[in-house]
Amino acid sequence: MAKIIEVSQLSFSYPEEDGNPSSPALHDVSLDIEEGEFLAILGHNGCGKSTLAKHFNGLLKAESGSVKVMNMDASEEQNLLEIRRNVGMVFQNPDNQLIATVVDEDVAFALENLGVPYPEMVQRVDEALELVGMTKYRHHAPHRLSGGQKQRVAIAGVLAMRPRCIVLDEPTAMLDPQGRREVMKTIRRLNREQGITVVLITHYMDEAVQADRVVVMGEGEIILDGTPREVFQNVGLLHSLSLDVPQTAELMFALRQEDIKVPIAVLSVEECLEVLEKMLGGAKK
């Protein structure tokens, strides 16, 4: 498969403030993202995951090392427009990324910037709203929508550019469970049905287990990288990084501490049930 984003030996630190020297936010990070994959990035606040994400579309420039997006150098000014068109970005607070006062006008914002001609623009706005299931709300004012709906509008605003990749920086952190479900469903569908590469930064384990691949970061470095099943084997390590583990894996971990032989990376309710049934054997009444 083709690589859409290639990060090699990337280091970055924020400028120091008031004489507080800042420790490097990223240290020698290398990461390749394949076209079409669904990648989740985990890590506690301040571990550098947002900083890394901002390199994916040239919001930040590599201090040392390099970031290539579709073989274009992300530190070259003349590549930025093309990179940003292809790598869309959605942020945590939906209120602070909607620009217009009506939903469809907001979705059209990027297209206006790109100079897309009018008839095509209308078609692409319709298409983007349809993909996130917000067609019904096209004439609404964003501030009257729920958090989940706002976030879906923000995703539509990015989709209108027809990007090959979407980077979402904790898109569900400020949402209620209902909003989280809506947004996750949308993200999954875009990945599966539209083949869009998804990079999801999150704290929620139940979101991370839905990805094809999970990268765990800590103190500016990549610590684990693998399928959810591989990554969640490392319950002890994840705990030491103050990260959550899916509850089912947590239960398995607790059982293994009692010398009961069960697999650890059990990631869903159904799977957990199966394992427990096998373990309990004839314990039915």
Partner: peptide, 12 residues
């Protein structure tokens, strides 16, 4: 999730 697991176990 863990609650769901135990409810399912009981139902089985």
């Amino acid at each position: 999730h863990i609650t769901k697991v135990f409810i399912a176990l009981q139902e089985k």
